[in-house]
């Protein structure tokens, strides 16, 4: 008898269960993420933009980027999401969410974190030069804007013509109200003198100047110094003349000019460099130099001045508009130019 009751109850259960099914909906097939929000700062949050299988989070650059977040996630009706809403997840591109529809269908979404950091703005003006071992400063409100003021995240490089990069150490500091960045230029010998492009990286951003805008140069105290001339000199056209001095390096040609009317330089001729040592430079006297007697280092008619062209890489050099740099030959006497 008891067995019969159990069977009857079972049968009834089956019956009612079957009947109950009449009012049920088919399982929902929907498995979308319908909203996704990440807390930014206090009560503020950013909403994720959901496209295909990606949840894009645009993160404001001026707020620190958290390593983990607890996104609030909503999904299609009757679907479930894993990890669940409010669960801590890595705040990084690639973090996966899986939505399971009521009918068991699965859909994966992947996070994409985009830090909307402004492009670095570097103002280089019209080019400049800096001496080995000196400091350069940038004002982060004017000349170098939108870098992260942290020398772990912001790096400064000089890039030469062969694309070799030299990183220069940077220091962030404030001067009064001004937010500054100091760059230490290497000592002589660590990098070559010459023109460089500037590259700055900061966080996700990077900028490099199109052209060389910074010249790294020798100090003026390192320039060649020419011994003063004394006595009367006779130059024979086509022969050579040697100037002696100290710190001669990278000597180029020389120029002869006069100041006949005291303010306009008139070229008399160019001296071609024949040979040079650290203490002397020898030049050929041009055949075209007019013969006669010149008063040396004086102004007016029949005068002559001499400048030896040295390396371009001295203060005054500008890689944007390089101009030859000369040292004056001093002394006072006469030069007689003969055939």
């Amino acid at each position: 008898m008891q067995r019969k009751h159990i069977l009857l109850a079972f049968a009834a259960l089956l019956f009612f269960a079957a009947c109950k099914k009449e009012t049920e909906h088919a399982p929902y097939p929907y498995h979308r993420i319908t909203s996704f929000a990440v807390q930014t700062n206090g009560a503020d949050s950013v909403s994720g933009a959901i496209t295909a299988d990606t949840v894009i989070i645009y993160w404001p650059y001026h707020l620190p980027l958290p390593e983990q977040v607890r996104p609030k996630v909503t999904v299609s009706e009757n679907a479930t999401v894993s990890p669940a809403s409010g669960t801590a997840v890595d705040f990084a591109t690639g973090t996966k969410y899986t939505v399971e529809a009521q009918d068991g269908g699965l859909k994966d979404y992947f996070l994409k974190v985009i830090v909307q950091q402004p492009a670095i703005q570097l103002y280089t003006g019209f080019g400049q030069s800096v001496v080995f071992g000196s400091d350069m400063t940038y004002d982060n409100s004017t000349t170098l804007r939108y870098v992260i003021r942290d020398n772990q995240q912001t790096h400064y490089f000089l890039v030469d013509a062969e694309n070799n990069e030299a990183e220069l150490p940077v220091t962030f500091y404030t001067a009064g109200r001004d937010s500054m960045m100091r760059v230490k230029v290497p000592e002589k010998g660590q990098i070559a003198a010459g023109p460089y492009r500037i590259k700055v990286t900061s966080g996700t951003q990077s900028v490099i100047t199109e052209n060389a805008v910074l010249g790294v140069v020798n100090g003026w105290e390192d320039r060649p110094v020419v011994n003063e001339l004394s006595g009367s000199m006779t130059w024979k056209r086509g022969e050579t003349i040697t100037f002696e001095g100290t710190q001669f390096a990278d000597m180029q040609g020389a120029r002869l000019y006069s100041l006949p009317d005291w303010w306009t330089e008139t070229e008399l001729g160019a001296l071609e460099l024949v040979s040079a040592t650290a203490t002397s430079a020898t030049y050929r006297i041009p055949d075209t130099l007019p013969t006669g007697t010149y008063t040396f280092n004086d102004d007016g008619p029949n005068t002559m001045r001499i400048q030896l062209r040295i390396s371009d890489y001295f203060p005054g050099y500008n890689p944007v508009s390089p101009k030859p740099i000369y040292v004056d030959v001093k002394g006072s006497d006469t030069i007689v130019v003969t055939e």
């Binding site: 019956f15 079957a18 009947c19 099914k21 009449e22 009012t23 049920e24 909906h25 088919a26 399982p27 929902y28 097939p29 929907y30 009521q102």
Partner: peptide
């Protein structure tokens, strides 16, 4: 009764 049931599709 089961065979009689029309499954209500998901809206």
């Amino acid at each position: 009764s089961c065979t009689k049931t029309d499954t209500v599709p998901a809206p």
